[in-house]
């Protein structure tokens, strides 16, 4: 029940901050931009590029799932940035201002406090991601070709895990540092590090969380969910839970001052 109380308070807070308005809208914008700009690429080149008279080249129309993947890439860059910046004050800001102490003076467990905040952010991000993917999917279907709705749902589920992983990193950083700016910066650094490590150690890290996107691409083009994707999903969930546990632990052992 305590969990629900903190969770509800966090939801109310996000509503007051307009997070429930602007985060979904930003994801929709990110989702729309790539199908549209890819579709209008020939016209854009024609009107701005100083091509010599008579020069023409064919731009092949990408297959539908490639366009959806472009939107995912957009979420991976700007979307992750927005999540990191949005969640950097999640706990750190409250510790700085003393609100956290007000909450924790009451018999609220650290684990409840941290996990409820994590859950509230996750719900917001997952809903936003769904809105963004839906927008992208609608435009892809309109302009490029068919992608089935079940594929969209699968993409949402697996890609959502990657974003939950990012939120978990952010919550963990929130427990380590008290300055929101530092939390945001370290979160982005850790996400980038994960991607770089996965690229460099590609042959060893077969199931790294950063591999979710490539496996989703494979799923979209081949139409089947590979075992690798499931394994990566499980690993990602595992690491996220580990990060949360670590966050609760450091939060508990650290002085609240």
């Amino acid at each position: 029940m305590q969990f629900l109380t903190v969770f509800k308070r966090e939801m109310l807070e996000s509503g007051r901050n307009f997070k429930w308005i602007w985060v979904p809208l930003v994801f929709i914008l990110l989702g729309l931009s790539d199908p549209l700009s890819t579709y209008y690429l020939p016209q854009i080149i024609e009107s701005v590029g100083g091509l010599p008279e008579g020069a023409s080249f064919e731009i092949p129309t990408p297959p539908p799932h490639d366009v959806l993947m472009m939107s995912l890439a957009q979420f991976s860059q700007l979307g992750v940035l927005v999540i990191a910046l949005m969640s950097m004050g999640l706990i750190a800001g409250e510790r700085k201002s003393g609100v956290a102490e007000l909450v924790l003076v009451k018999p609220v467990k650290y684990s409840t406090y941290v996990s409820a905040k994590w859950a509230a952010t996750s719900v917001l991000v997952l809903v936003s991601l769904f809105a963004g993917l839906l927008a992208s999917w609608y435009y892809v279907n309109l302009l490029f070709g068919n992608i089935s709705f079940s594929n969209l749902l699968a993409t949402w589920f697996f890609y959502g895990l990657w974003l939950l992983f990012v939120i978990s990193i952010s919550v963990f950083m929130n427990s380590l540092f008290k300055v929101p700016g530092l939390v945001g910066f370290m979160t982005i650094v850790l996400v980038i590090l994960t991607s770089i490590m996965t690229t460099v150690l590609d042959h060893i890290l077969d199931w790294s969380p950063a591999k979710l996107s490539p496996y989703i691409r494979m799923m979209l083009s081949e139409g089947t969910i590979s075992g690798d994707l499931w394994a990566t999903a499980l690993i990602t969930i595992g690491i996220s839970i580990g990060l949360l546990a670590a966050a609760i632990y450091t939060f508990r052992t650290k002085e609240m001052a």
Binding site: F18, I21, W22, L25, I28, L32, S33, L36, Y39, L142
Partner: peptide, 16 residues
């Protein structure tokens, strides 16, 4: 096709 982009942009601006 472009209208939704403009609408979203407007909503964001007004809310801000």
């Amino acid at each position: 096709l472009i209208a939704p982009l403009i609408v979203i942009q407007l909503i964001l601006q007004v809310v801000a």
